[in-house]
């Protein structure tokens, strides 16, 4: 197998300033006005000051709050889905010449202190894509979510031939090469599996590091529920059949 995919055990250091120039955080957001400001402030406090928010046609003031919090905001005039928003963000980052970028959920599920560990293999180990895996540190993860993640990872592996312990993680880092190479076509949650497929297709180097997910009533209400998960799976199967 030409793809290098291994599991690193980088521990999560505390926050620190002085992040490299050209390092960005990309946040796809839809109707997150209540949380986005807090998420950006948390990132800023950790030294991550270059934040790009793609507002995916929100009906609330997500864009305004993100802008006031200091982020660069790109706006989708209509809601297209998290996959489309991620693709827009990566296209923007490629245009501005980002050296590295990490996707980060807008619902407060991720801890900014995990970012340093997620970025580290990009700079130190020649990785192109780093998956922040909740399954390598599943403490506090609801059992149903754990089972769902395993199913999703196995489905992704069977469909695309690339294993990841947490294929649906929203916390991923990308090298400049990955930002410029990965081509995303799917619009919704199937984008997570599509990124895993792209890693294999483009012969990118993948690493995984453990991250801790913060589960609150709010973050659990967002993201992929059971029904959305099934729809995502169905879309993945159709997509695989069409592009076999």
């Amino acid at each position: 197998m030409t793809v290098t995919a291994s599991v690193s055990t980088v521990s999560s250091p505390e926050c620190g300033a002085g992040r490299p120039d050209g390092e960005y955080i990309l946040i796809p957001a839809f109707n997150e006005a209540g949380k986005i400001g807090e998420v950006i402030a948390g990132l800023s406090a950790c030294g991550y000051t270059r934040v790009v928010v793609v507002d995916d046609g929100s009906r609330d003031d997500t864009a305004g709050r993100a802008r006031r919090a200091g982020a660069v905001v790109l706006r989708h005039p209509i809601n297209c889905g998290v996959g489309a928003a991620t693709a827009t963000g990566l296209a923007y980052l490629s245009n501005v010449g980002a050296v590295a970028a990490a996707t980060f959920d807008a619902d407060g599920q991720h801890d900014p202190r995990d970012l340093a560990a997620v970025f580290a293999p990009i700079y130190d180990d020649g990785a192109d894509v780093v998956i922040g895996s909740r399954m390598l540190n599943p403490e506090g993860m609801p059992r149903v979510r754990r089972i769902a993640q395993r199913l999703a990872s196995w489905s992704t592996f069977l469909l695309f031939g690339q294993w990841s312990t947490d294929s649906q993680s929203g916390l991923k880092a990308f090298s400049r090469r990955a930002i410029g190479t990965i081509q995303l076509k799917t619009n919704r949650y199937e984008v997570c599996s599509e990124i895993i497929a792209e890693i294999r297709r483009r012969k990118l180097v993948m690493r995984e590091v453990p991250v801790r997910a913060i589960y609150t009533a709010y973050s659990l209400s967002k993201g992929q529920g059971f029904t959305v998960g099934l729809k995502t799976l169905a879309r993945l199967f159709i997509d695989r059949i069409l592009h076999w």
């Binding site: 200091g70 706006r75 989708h76 005039p77 297209c80 489309a84 245009n95």
Partner: peptide, 28 residues
């Protein structure tokens, strides 16, 4: 149609993007 629409939306979003800079500051 959905994918074509998303591609169009992307073009609009990138066209209307703030001046592209390598150093946007999250602290305003």
């Amino acid at each position: 149609i959905e994918r074509d629409l998303a591609a169009l939306v992307r073009v609009l979003a990138l066209r209307d993007a703030p001046e592209q800079t390598n150093q946007p500051r999250a602290d305003g």
